[in-house]
Amino acid sequence: MKIAIASGKGGTGKTTLSTNLAAYIAESQKVVLSDLDVEEPNSGLFIKGALIKEENKFTMKPEWKEDKCTLCGLCQEVCNYNAIVKLGNEIVVFPELCHSCYACSELCPTNALPMVPQKMGVLKHFEKNGISFIESRLDIGQEQAVPLIAQTLEFVDENFLDTSIKLYDSPPGTSCPVIEATKDADFIILITEPTPFGFNDLKLAIETMKKLEKKFAVVINRFGIGNDDVVEYCEKENIPLIAKIPNNRKVAELYSRGELIYDKIPEVKQELKKITDYILKILKPNKA
């Protein structure tokens, strides 16, 4: 089962929940944790495992071969992203606009636009106490997170067939990277803080998950600050609110040192247990 941890607003505790939940589950069974926030992966700050594997990841971009080109301009016409333009007797490719759809390359009558690999990032596999941790990091200057997220998901699918629980620390927001990170998940945990900002972005995230027809539940982090809007909203909308991680200065202290918190703060561990029980129950309704 694939469980994505997403949020809407950034900084509400996706990584804190992902890493602590992974470590908690790993006490009783093997778990895969994958950091899909490839633009700024940070789960690795808390899961410091042994490096098992490191591989470069590539995306394919068209490269213009002047000697083969007849300047027919078809490539420019078929590109949906305006990533390729004909300027006089030259074809110019904008790799950062290209979505690697291959249309220009496949439809070019003279094969003047072969697709060539371009490095976009690095995937690393670490192991630590029953957690297989996969982290992908986009190279500086690369603009598209989606292809690297997709390849990271593929890596997890191919290499961890036997691991039943897979956690995905997703990027923030509600745009393409989040869609890619959550679209194949069986269940989404939306973590928020009980503040007006957290509440606003939570509603956007909920709308997104409803559009994707995903099963999801809400977890409140830093419970005790802000107001009751999130609680009331979840009640009114019949959205399962499965845990409330208390606001606690000690969490911040441990976090700032790159430490896990669940094994040092019993109230947090108790909330993680609630989340785990809920997930196991909802994903195996027949066994309940």
Binding site: Q76, C79, N80, Y81, N82, A83, V85, F94, L97, H99
Partner: peptide
């Protein structure tokens, strides 16, 4: 109608 690459497209017209 263009979601992406309005700049290059308009530049091409100017070109």
């Amino acid at each position: 109608q263009e979601a992406h690459g309005a700049g290059p497209k308009t530049s091409q017209v100017i070109y």
